[in-house]
């Protein structure tokens, strides 16, 4: 066996090992992406299904995000819709109430700059971009309080922009919503 033959052999071995590793790498990636896609479709939350716009500077005048319409609304199908506005530098309502073990739909927007909508201890986490409506479904399995900070820099008062989400029993929510179109907590 000449020296060149040996070199060529070695190069072939190297190439074979490379190929195996490349195949393994691709397999790892396919498995990971597949797992993510499967979990997304069957187990967990999904990205917002539709893009909706809204005129940010007039949300307080008409439409869904007027002041009287903000807060939690009990829907005929038993679910709850929570409408909120994030603005420099507070959320309205500042304290949101939702019943436990009930499908909840958060709908929110921003009239000024980009804000973040993050309920700590849950995977409710979305952006509020002026001009668009953000929608995110949730279901709370335990009663209790959650902090809700704005998670996107929105100006000098950003560090003071914290709200709360109160998860109450279904009975308590019914009591609160009796006679009220919209429910929010004041504390």
């Amino acid at each position: 066996m000449t020296v060149e033959d040996h070199d060529i052999d070695a190069a072939r071995v190297a190439e074979r090992v490379e190929r195996r590793w490349a195949t393994l790498s691709i397999a790892i990636i396919v498995v990971l992406a597949g797992a993510a896609a499967f979990a997304g479709i069957h187990k967990a939350t999904m990205p917002q299904a539709r893009v909706e716009t809204v005129e940010p500077q007039t949300i307080h005048l008409s439409g869904e995000f007027t002041e009287a319409n903000l807060g939690s609304a009990a829907e005929p199908d038993g679910s709850v819709t929570v409408r909120a506005v994030g603005q420099q530098y507070s959320f309205t309502p500042q304290c949101m109430v939702v019943p436990v073990d009930t499908p909840v739909l958060f709908r929110a927007t921003s009239p000024d700059v980009v804000h973040g909508f993050l309920i700590q201890g849950t995977n409710v986490n979305t952006m509020l971009v002026p001009g668009y409506v953000s929608q995110i479904p949730a279901r709370f399995s335990r009663t209790g309080d959650h902090l809700m900070p704005c998670q996107e820099f929105c100006g000098v008062g950003h560090e003071g922009m914290w709200a709360k989400v109160k998860v109450v029993t279904r009975d308590e929510f019914l009591r609160m919503s009796a006679g009220n179109r919209r429910v929010a907590c004041v504390d």
Partner: peptide, 23 residues
């Protein structure tokens, strides 16, 4: 992500003490 026209939810009874100014 084709944009959907905003839903026109009927507002509750208007409160005269709320501002009508667009800032």
């Amino acid at each position: 992500g084709v944009v959907r026209t905003p839903s026109a939810q009927a507002p509750a009874e208007p409160d005269a003490r709320l501002t009508k100014v667009v800032v």
